[in-house]
């Protein structure tokens, strides 16, 4: 098998916030009946977490599980574990109507850290990123600039963004521009 590399090889940028390409991350799309206890048990068995509420993300030691739509979850794990976890999901859900697929190589992920991460994203997403509205533990699927992206805050100064790998370099450039020194209104 060829050697896997992430879209920008861990590139970083230091502006008003620090932007880091998060490197290879395991990502599994799981579609199915989220009210099915078998599905919840299968998720627990691979990432050690209960299902998230609507629009929520749960992060734990083994990985994370994010609500993407009424019939879709995104599981985050170690890159090298993704295939094995898909096999485990396939076995646990055999017979049910579901889909589990390793999408790790189709995605890119960035981590923004520092005071002001809300404002960097607020420049390009049609989302109210104020503390009052966008809470910790909420994942939002929307757009940043012109591209589809999902983002969430792990704490007030740590924000993660996932996008399609094909536009990863573009998003990095966009984020760098949005995080330029002296460019944040410091309002949120």
């Amino acid at each position: 098998m060829s050697k896997a590399v992430s879209v920008l090889g861990g590139a970083t940028y230091q502006g008003e916030v620090t932007i880091t390409e998060a490197g290879l991350r395991g990502m599994i799309t799981l579609r199915g009946d989220l009210s099915d206890e078998k599905l919840a048990a299968a998720v627990k068995s691979v990432v050690g977490l209960a299902l998230p509420e609507t629009r929520a993300i749960k992060e734990g030691k083994q990985g994370a599980v994010a609500w993407m739509s009424p019939d879709e979850l995104l599981l985050l794990c170690e890159y090298q574990h993704a295939d094995a976890l898909v096999a485990k999901l396939d076995a646990a859900l055999a017979g049910a109507h579901f889909l589990a697929i390793n999408v790790s190589d189709a995605r890119a992920m960035f981590t923004l850290s520092g005071a002001g991460v809300r404002e960097v994203i607020a420049k390009g997403a049609p989302v109210d990123l104020s503390r009052r509205s966008f809470k910790l533990g909420e994942i939002r699927r929307s757009r940043i600039g012109q591209i589809a992206a999902a983002f969430w805050l792990s704490d007030e100064e740590t924000l993660s963004v996932i996008c399609f790998r094909s536009v990863g370099a573009h998003l990095f450039d966009w984020l760098k521009n949005a995080a330029e020194h002296g460019s944040l209104p410091r309002f949120l």
Binding site: T54, R55, S69, P70, V127, R141, S142
Partner: peptide, 12 residues
């Protein structure tokens, strides 16, 4: 009605 977001036109 599915995710509960008041979605901006540009999200739709």
């Amino acid at each position: 009605p599915y995710c509960g977001i008041d979605a901006d036109e540009t999200d739709l």
